[in-house]
Write a protein that binds this DNA or RNA. Structure first.
Lengths: 210, 210
DNA sequence: ATATTTTTGTTGCAAAAGCAACAATTTTTA
DNA sequence: TAAAAATTGTTGCTTTTGCAACAAAAATAT
């Protein structure tokens, strides 16, 4: 995600002098956090990528969000009404800033770097989150698997400024992300190839239309 | 939506001394704004309610968002990549604050009330937006019409603290909101009644389970 | 390097959802 | 208040999607 400020240099300079912020490292497949109880946790993904996943009662897995560098997450963004469990799973080695707060407004007593950073940049971080979520809603409201696939491919193509791009995750995960059955998605993908809409080998896709 | 600050009293006191903010009134069915071109429009719905709708190439209408008092909207929240048109339609008489800005950071030269208000309260307003959107994603990722209906009803029941509640829009709109075919939704609703999961007359629903 | 696990690709069949069409009711408008 | 428009409710049929199961390929772990 493109930011108007330099997160990296902030992170490099960041001294850990605030009791309420921690920097933690997670290895592949570790659970970074869960959204079970309300504890006002707010996290920033500094490096790596992760997924927010939900397992429902029928055993379906849904990738609710795919998180990459500079994305924010945490149960502050949720009213925990669901009866399904939400987990954030590291997809590769991840560095995460974890922060607990009472309110967005509450400033740290010692006027620490991190709080100044937050006050300054939170609106932009959250705004980016809203933009991401709106694109997610756009995708999910599409009526057919074909439209969802094409919509997602168009998104990736636009982002990379290239008709050819690599999927950020496996096809199994893609189905869980689009919230559709994997075999049905594979079938539709085959049809898209046959119709000349896409080319595909492995996780590399080329959009032939639009 | 419950806010930690008093929007109403701000609005009442609000004097229109900033060139970049306008307060406008719209009557039922008027188009409040469109998300066609990038012009950094950011709006706050002061009263009434409205829908953000999309019409796709197959003639399907989707209610992307249902907006009510204190909700924020505008194309700042969108990267306009879609080829479908997005419109905000007033569902009843609406009062709207419309604001154009270069960046969240840019402060008004005359240090006006509105800008102070924004600086102070924007994080909370946007945070609420994120929470809403996450619930929306939760709903849309559900796999069946039945699950979507029950999920939505549970949401309304939780919000109103009551097993019986009135839908905020017509059944036709509900289908467009859940992004499913209306007749299929009606059929599922009938089954829900037959299975004793809900009771229903007109737009009043009672949840019998959970 | 080999065994194990995960992912990919495929299919037949079943279930769910979409489409079209229409009548009945309710709401809106003239 | 009568006419027009929109919403609700329903159904038969078609299409799409999901499910289950399996083989092949690839990735991962031992």
């Amino acid at each position: 995600m493109n930011l108007n400020f330099d997160m990296d240099s902030f992170i490099n300079d960041f001294e850990h002098n605030c009791q309420r912020v921690q920097k933690k490292t997670f290895s592949k497949n570790e659970v970074i956090t869960t959204y079970i109880q309300k504890r006002n946790q707010f996290c920033i993904l500094i490096s790596g990528n992760a997924d927010l996943v939900r397992y429902d009662l029928n055993g379906n897995r849904t990738i609710v969000e795919h998180l990459s560098k500079n994305d924010i997450f945490g149960e502050v963004f949720y009213t925990v009404t669901t009866n399904n469990e939400l987990l954030v799973e590291a997809r590769e080695k991840c560095e995460v800033l974890i922060y607990i707060y009472d309110s967005i407004h509450t400033k740290c007593r010692n006027n620490c770097k991190f709080h100044n950073f937050l006050t300054e940049n939170l609106p932009e971080l959250i705004l980016n989150k809203v933009i991401d979520l709106n694109m997610r809603v756009e995708l999910l409201t599409k009526r057919t698997i074909r439209e969802k696939l094409l919509g997602y491919f168009t998104l990736l193509s636009t982002r990379t400024l290239n008709k050819t791009f690599t999927l950020p995750f496996s096809l199994t995960d893609l189905a869980d992300y689009l919230s559709v059955d994997r075999s049905a998605m594979m079938r539709e993908m085959k049809l898209l190839k046959e119709d000349g809409c896409i080319e595909k080998n492995k996780n590399k896709i080329t959009l032939k239309i639009y």
